[in-house]
């Protein structure tokens, strides 16, 4: 149960090795936080991340989570409630970028991305939301992306999955609001992180720490969406309304 200052006691990060996700966890940590759970595929990497977070009054557990094993997601969410009590904040931060030049021609490679980024996210978000609806409170942070706002030719599969989960999260957010559960959709631009290492930064590039700051503020204000940096909301408002012929000619990669 978070306190009157919106300080969470229990934080779950799904995608427990995500740079952005970990930055958000660090930003939300406070003296009342008792448990952090890092759920990830690579438990060894998760353990390394956990070591950096742990201190005397804070337990950080790493649990194995496989996005594509959707049949196990309900039991996974249940086990979180049983072990840690109420979940105050869950951050859904996993996803694969993939190589756009491959995924846009190789169906099998495309499906692998779609299974993790869309099907996996939808499945585990609903499972977590169900637990939170039972407790009558809680916040879900959905890491979307501006890539889903208008999908670029550089990576249609990644952009398409982000568009999908963004729309899904908007709709689910309206369903769960009546049960006291808050859905926050975070739409960062290009973030300099492990996922984008080796990629040329796009305009308005940002950092995991800046995304974390914006996310924490938006959670406190119970906003539904937050763009990072904020100006991207207006940039993409223009971009999404451009005629296709103009959009295609833009040097956006």
């Amino acid at each position: 149960m978070e306190n009157a200052l919106g300080q969470p006691q229990t934080i779950v990060l799904i995608g427990g090795t995500s740079d952005i996700g970990l930055a958000i966890v660090r930003r939300l940590l406070n003296p009342t936080t008792t448990s952090v759970v890092l759920a990830c595929r690579d438990v060894e990497r998760g353990e390394r991340a956990a070591t950096g977070l742990r201190h005397r009054d804070l337990s950080v557990d790493v649990v194995h989570f496989e996005a594509t094993e959707t049949a196990a997601h309900e039991a996974f969410a249940r086990s979180l409630s049983e072990k840690y009590g109420d979940i105050d904040v869950a951050i859904i931060a996993f996803g694969l970028l993939g190589d756009g030049s491959v995924t846009s021609v190789d169906p099998e490679a495309a499906v692998e991305i779609a299974d993790v980024n869309f099907t996996g996210v939808v499945s585990c978000t609903i499972a977590i939301a169900n637990e939170m609806r039972q407790q009558g409170h809680g916040s879900i942070v959905m890491l979307s992306s501006v890539a889903g706002e208008r999908v670029r030719r550089v990576n249609p599969v990644y952009g398409g999955t982000k568009a999908g989960i963004d729309g899904f999260a908007q709709g689910l957010g309206d369903v769960i609001a009546a049960d006291g559960v808050h859905m926050l959709i975070v739409r960062p631009g290009f973030v300099e992180s492990a996922m984008t290492t080796g990629h040329e930064p796009a305009p308005f590039a940002t950092t995991p720490e800046k995304v974390a700051d914006a996310t924490a503020k938006a959670l406190r204000a119970r906003r539904r969406t937050v763009w990072v940096p904020g100006i991207l909301r207006y940039v993409f408002s223009v971009l999404r309304h451009l005629p296709g012929a103009v959009w295609r000619r833009l040097p956006l990669g």
Partner: peptide, 9 residues
């Protein structure tokens, strides 16, 4: 509560 801070349903 009277402080209107952290409601639940």
């Amino acid at each position: 509560g009277w402080g209107r801070t952290n409601p639940t349903v």
